[in-house]
Protein backbone atom coordinates (compact mmCIF):
# COMPACT_ATOMS: atom_id res chain seq x y z
CA UNK A 1 0.00 0.00 0.00
CA UNK A 2 1.97 3.00 -1.19
CA UNK A 3 -0.34 5.68 0.16
CA UNK A 4 -1.24 4.50 3.63
CA UNK A 5 -1.00 7.82 5.43
CA UNK A 6 -2.16 10.20 2.72
CA UNK A 7 -5.38 11.20 4.44
CA UNK A 8 -3.44 12.52 7.41
CA UNK A 9 -0.86 14.27 5.21
CA UNK A 10 -3.47 15.84 3.00
CA UNK A 11 -5.49 17.51 5.73
CA UNK A 12 -2.50 18.72 7.66
CA UNK A 13 -1.50 22.23 6.69
CA UNK A 14 1.98 23.21 7.77
CA UNK A 15 1.52 26.92 7.06
CA UNK A 16 4.60 28.77 8.19
CA UNK A 17 5.04 32.34 9.29
CA UNK A 18 6.75 34.96 7.17
CA UNK A 19 5.35 37.36 4.62
CA UNK A 20 7.36 37.71 1.46
CA UNK A 21 5.68 39.24 -1.55
CA UNK A 22 5.38 35.88 -3.31
CA UNK A 23 3.71 34.32 -0.29
CA UNK A 24 1.20 37.17 -0.11
CA UNK A 25 0.38 36.69 -3.76
CA UNK A 26 0.05 32.98 -3.30
CA UNK A 27 -2.17 33.35 -0.24
CA UNK A 28 -4.41 35.80 -2.11
CA UNK A 29 -4.69 33.40 -5.03
CA UNK A 30 -5.30 30.48 -2.69
CA UNK A 31 -8.07 32.37 -0.94
CA UNK A 32 -9.65 33.48 -4.22
CA UNK A 33 -9.65 29.87 -5.39
CA UNK A 34 -10.97 28.44 -2.14
CA UNK A 35 -7.96 26.21 -1.64
CA UNK A 36 -8.32 24.29 1.57
CA UNK A 37 -9.10 20.84 0.17
CA UNK A 38 -6.39 18.30 -0.75
CA UNK A 39 -7.33 18.59 -4.44
CA UNK A 40 -7.09 21.71 -6.64
CA UNK A 41 -10.61 22.86 -7.49
CA UNK A 42 -11.57 24.35 -10.87
CA UNK A 43 -10.81 28.08 -11.06
CA UNK A 44 -10.58 30.73 -13.80
CA UNK A 45 -7.39 29.15 -15.15
CA UNK A 46 -9.25 25.84 -15.49
CA UNK A 47 -11.99 27.53 -17.52
CA UNK A 48 -9.45 29.12 -19.87
CA UNK A 49 -7.67 25.80 -20.43
CA UNK A 50 -10.95 23.89 -20.84
CA UNK A 51 -12.29 26.16 -23.57
CA UNK A 52 -9.01 26.01 -25.53
CA UNK A 53 -8.86 22.24 -25.03
CA UNK A 54 -12.42 21.64 -26.22
CA UNK A 55 -11.48 23.51 -29.39
CA UNK A 56 -8.08 21.87 -30.07
CA UNK A 57 -8.06 18.40 -28.46
CA UNK A 58 -8.33 15.34 -30.68
CA UNK A 59 -7.20 11.73 -30.61
CA UNK A 60 -5.73 10.41 -27.39
CA UNK A 61 -5.77 13.33 -24.98
CA UNK A 62 -4.01 13.51 -21.62
CA UNK A 63 -4.47 16.17 -18.97
CA UNK A 64 -1.31 16.18 -16.85
CA UNK A 65 -1.95 17.16 -13.21
CA UNK A 66 -5.68 16.81 -13.71
CA UNK A 67 -6.58 17.71 -10.09
CA UNK A 68 -10.35 17.41 -9.70
CA UNK A 69 -10.59 16.15 -13.31
CA UNK A 70 -12.90 19.01 -14.29
CA UNK A 71 -11.00 20.15 -17.41
CA UNK A 72 -10.62 16.57 -18.66
CA UNK A 73 -14.34 15.99 -18.12
CA UNK A 74 -15.25 19.08 -20.19
CA UNK A 75 -13.04 17.82 -23.02
CA UNK A 76 -14.52 14.33 -22.83
CA UNK A 77 -18.07 15.73 -22.99
CA UNK A 78 -17.68 18.52 -25.53
CA UNK A 79 -14.47 18.02 -27.48
CA UNK A 80 -13.46 15.82 -30.42
CA UNK A 81 -10.94 13.71 -28.50
CA UNK A 82 -11.35 9.96 -28.97
CA UNK A 83 -10.09 9.19 -25.48
CA UNK A 84 -9.41 11.45 -22.49
CA UNK A 85 -7.01 10.50 -19.70
CA UNK A 86 -6.16 12.38 -16.54
CA UNK A 87 -2.94 11.92 -14.58
CA UNK A 88 -1.84 13.27 -11.23
CA UNK A 89 0.74 12.44 -8.56
CA UNK A 90 -1.95 13.07 -5.92
CA UNK A 91 -4.01 9.91 -5.20
CA UNK A 92 -6.99 12.00 -4.01
CA UNK A 93 -7.00 13.79 -7.37
CA UNK A 94 -6.84 10.49 -9.27
CA UNK A 95 -9.90 9.20 -7.41
CA UNK A 96 -11.83 12.44 -8.00
CA UNK A 97 -11.03 12.34 -11.72
CA UNK A 98 -12.07 8.69 -11.99
CA UNK A 99 -15.35 9.46 -10.20
CA UNK A 100 -16.03 12.02 -12.95
CA UNK A 101 -15.62 9.37 -15.62
CA UNK A 102 -12.08 10.38 -16.62
CA UNK A 103 -9.59 7.52 -17.05
CA UNK A 104 -7.19 8.19 -14.20
CA UNK A 105 -3.52 7.19 -13.96
CA UNK A 106 -1.11 8.08 -11.16
CA UNK A 107 1.96 9.30 -13.03
CA UNK A 108 4.71 11.88 -12.54
CA UNK A 109 4.37 14.29 -15.50
CA UNK A 110 4.86 12.21 -18.71
CA UNK A 111 7.18 9.53 -17.32
CA UNK A 112 4.88 6.53 -17.87
CA UNK A 113 3.55 7.40 -21.33
CA UNK A 114 4.88 5.67 -24.44
CA UNK A 115 6.85 7.49 -27.12
CA UNK A 116 4.48 9.41 -29.40
CA UNK A 117 1.39 7.97 -27.68
CA UNK A 118 -0.33 11.29 -26.99
CA UNK A 119 -2.10 13.31 -29.69
CA UNK A 120 -3.03 16.10 -27.28
CA UNK A 121 -1.48 17.02 -23.94
CA UNK A 122 -3.06 19.57 -21.59
CA UNK A 123 -1.19 21.01 -18.59
CA UNK A 124 -2.15 23.65 -16.06
CA UNK A 125 1.05 23.39 -14.04
CA UNK A 126 1.74 24.43 -10.47
CA UNK A 127 3.40 27.72 -11.29
CA UNK A 128 3.45 30.10 -8.33
CA UNK A 129 7.00 31.16 -7.53
CA UNK A 130 7.63 30.00 -3.98
CA UNK A 131 10.12 30.95 -1.32
CA UNK A 132 11.76 27.61 -0.36
CA UNK A 133 11.62 28.62 3.33
CA UNK A 134 7.86 29.09 3.18
CA UNK A 135 6.66 25.90 1.55
CA UNK A 136 3.55 24.24 2.99
CA UNK A 137 4.54 20.62 2.36
CA UNK A 138 1.08 19.25 1.65
CA UNK A 139 -0.98 18.34 -1.44
CA UNK A 140 -2.10 21.93 -1.89
CA UNK A 141 1.55 22.94 -2.03
CA UNK A 142 2.13 20.31 -4.71
CA UNK A 143 -0.82 21.71 -6.67
CA UNK A 144 0.37 25.34 -6.56
CA UNK A 145 4.09 25.72 -6.08
CA UNK A 146 6.41 26.02 -9.04
CA UNK A 147 9.53 26.41 -6.93
CA UNK A 148 11.61 29.58 -6.78
CA UNK A 149 11.30 30.30 -10.52
CA UNK A 150 7.72 29.06 -10.84
CA UNK A 151 9.03 26.66 -13.51
CA UNK A 152 10.09 23.69 -11.37
CA UNK A 153 7.58 21.39 -13.10
CA UNK A 154 7.20 23.23 -16.41
CA UNK A 155 10.85 22.59 -17.35
CA UNK A 156 10.92 18.80 -16.77
CA UNK A 157 7.51 18.60 -18.51
CA UNK A 158 8.95 20.38 -21.57
CA UNK A 159 12.09 18.20 -21.43
CA UNK A 160 10.01 15.01 -21.84
CA UNK A 161 7.23 16.38 -24.09
CA UNK A 162 9.13 15.91 -27.40
CA UNK A 163 9.28 12.17 -26.66
CA UNK A 164 5.68 11.54 -25.56
CA UNK A 165 3.85 13.88 -27.97
CA UNK A 166 2.80 12.34 -31.31
CA UNK A 167 4.61 13.80 -34.37
CA UNK A 168 1.52 15.81 -35.36
CA UNK A 169 0.34 16.33 -31.77
CA UNK A 170 -0.32 19.51 -29.86
CA UNK A 171 0.29 20.44 -26.22
CA UNK A 172 -1.71 23.21 -24.57
CA UNK A 173 0.25 24.70 -21.67
CA UNK A 174 -1.22 27.30 -19.35
CA UNK A 175 1.38 29.98 -18.60
CA UNK A 176 1.02 32.77 -16.04
CA UNK A 177 2.81 36.10 -16.26
CA UNK A 178 3.98 35.29 -12.68
CA UNK A 179 6.02 32.42 -14.13
CA UNK A 180 7.80 34.44 -16.80
CA UNK A 181 6.01 34.02 -20.13
CA UNK A 182 9.07 34.76 -22.28
CA UNK A 183 11.23 32.30 -20.32
CA UNK A 184 8.71 29.50 -20.86
CA UNK A 185 8.44 30.23 -24.60
CA UNK A 186 12.23 30.28 -24.95
CA UNK A 187 12.55 26.99 -23.07
CA UNK A 188 9.92 25.35 -25.31
CA UNK A 189 11.49 26.68 -28.52
CA UNK A 190 14.89 25.33 -27.37
CA UNK A 191 13.28 21.88 -27.14
CA UNK A 192 12.14 21.96 -30.77
CA UNK A 193 8.64 23.37 -30.50
CA UNK A 194 6.74 26.07 -32.31
CA UNK A 195 4.82 28.11 -29.73
CA UNK A 196 1.62 29.98 -30.46
CA UNK A 197 -0.65 31.80 -28.00
CA UNK A 198 -4.21 30.59 -28.60
CA UNK A 199 -5.98 32.25 -25.65
CA UNK A 200 -5.20 34.95 -23.11
CA UNK A 201 -6.98 36.56 -20.17
CA UNK A 202 -5.94 39.14 -17.58
CA UNK A 203 -6.73 38.95 -13.87
CA UNK A 204 -5.83 41.17 -10.90
CA UNK A 205 -2.59 39.33 -10.09
CA UNK A 206 -1.57 37.89 -13.43
CA UNK A 207 -2.18 37.38 -17.13
CA UNK A 208 -2.89 33.80 -18.13
CA UNK A 209 -2.01 32.52 -21.60
CA UNK A 210 -2.61 29.20 -23.31
CA UNK A 211 0.44 28.26 -25.31
CA UNK A 212 -0.06 25.72 -28.12
CA UNK A 213 3.17 23.75 -28.72
CA UNK A 214 3.78 21.69 -31.86
CA UNK A 215 6.90 19.86 -33.11
CA UNK A 216 8.71 22.41 -35.29
CA UNK A 217 10.02 19.81 -37.76
CA UNK A 218 6.60 18.26 -38.46
CA UNK A 219 5.34 18.70 -42.03
CA UNK A 220 1.53 18.77 -42.02
Amino acid sequence: MPEGDDEADATESAGSAGSTESKDTRDALAERRGLDAPVYEPAEDSGLLASAAVEHARGVTLEVGTGSGWVAEQVRREGDATRVLGSDVNPHACRRARDRGVEAVRVDLLAAFRDGALDTVLFNPPYLPTDPDNEWDDWQEVALSGGESGRKLIEPFLDDLPRALAPDGVALLLVSSLTGFADVVEYAVDRGFDAETVAEESYPFETLSILALRHRDHEP
Binding site: P2, E3, P91, R98, R106, V107, D108
Partner: peptide
Protein backbone atom coordinates in the same frame (compact mmCIF):
# COMPACT_ATOMS: atom_id res chain seq x y z
CA UNK B 1 -0.07 -1.76 -8.30
CA UNK B 2 -3.58 -1.17 -9.67
CA UNK B 3 -5.94 -0.24 -6.83
CA UNK B 4 -9.57 0.92 -7.01
CA UNK B 5 -9.23 0.92 -10.80
CA UNK B 6 -6.28 3.33 -10.81
CA UNK B 7 -2.80 2.18 -11.85
CA UNK B 8 -0.02 3.69 -9.76
CA UNK B 9 2.84 4.24 -12.19
CA UNK B 10 4.96 6.37 -9.89
CA UNK B 11 8.53 5.13 -9.60
CA UNK B 12 9.13 3.36 -6.27
CA UNK B 13 10.96 6.34 -4.72
CA UNK B 14 7.95 8.63 -5.26
CA UNK B 15 5.32 6.35 -3.74
CA UNK B 16 6.01 7.38 -0.10
Amino acid sequence: PIEDGIPNLLPPDMRE
